[in-house]
């Protein structure tokens, strides 16, 4: 069987389905507030590199992590490429390969321990009645852990050990 190309891998993934619609008009690039600020990030180039199967350049580089998730590009894309979602799909692949920026470990730890990506401190929780706020309800960490183990997401922390 023919090996699946990088662009096909992306297209098969949740979020990556629309990548082949792209005809490189550049509307995304000029819509992008980050691309305006730095040449390190250009959504059109990311999509082009993916379509040309330049897997290593994409996964080893830092550009895919610079998307600020504003969805401006996706909103204006004339070919309805779901650009932000495509970038998430590529990030998902990078993470599976162990190429993870450090902040995502923080997100992961917070989610799996507390059920939230930002921890609510004991101080903040204690202060609630004083402020006139009802007590915080417990988070559904147990259910969340079940979901994480079903999807294999809980193996995420193992990625850190892999050589980059």
């Amino acid at each position: 069987m023919r090996a699946e190309s990088f662009s096909e891998t992306i297209r098969e993934r949740l979020g990556g389905e629309t990548i082949t619609f792209c005809y490189q008009c550049g509307t995304c690039a000029s819509s992008c507030p980050v691309a305006k600020r730095t040449t390190d990030f250009n959504p059109r180039e990311i999509i082009k590199l993916c379509l040309l199967d330049e897997k290593d350049e994409i996964l080893d580089g830092k550009s895919i992590w610079l998307c600020c998730s504003c969805y401006n590009c996706q909103e204006r894309c004339p070919q309805k490429v779901e650009i932000a979602d495509v970038i998430y799909a590529v990030r998902n692949i990078a993470i599976e390969k162990g190429k993870v920026p450090n902040i995502y470990f923080e997100f992961f730890n917070a989610i799996s321990n507390d059920g939230r990506i930002v921890k609510v401190s004991q101080f903040a929780e204690n202060k609630r009645p004083q402020l006139g706020l009802p007590p915080l309800q417990p988070t559904g960490v147990d259910a969340l852990k079940k979901i994480l183990s079903t999807t294999g997401f809980d193996k995420f922390h193992l990625k850190k050990e892999e050589p980059q």
Binding site: R13, L14, G15, W65, S69, A84, D85, Y88, A89, R91, N92, I95, I103, Y104, F107, F108, I111, G115, R116, I117, Q137, P138, T139, G140, V141, A143, L144, I147, L148, T151, F153, F156
Partner: peptide, 19 residues
Amino acid sequence: IANMTCCCPPPVQSIDLKT
């Protein structure tokens, strides 16, 4: 309501969309 969790915004979607 008890037992709500994280909504999973883009930073978490970046780790895994399906999850």
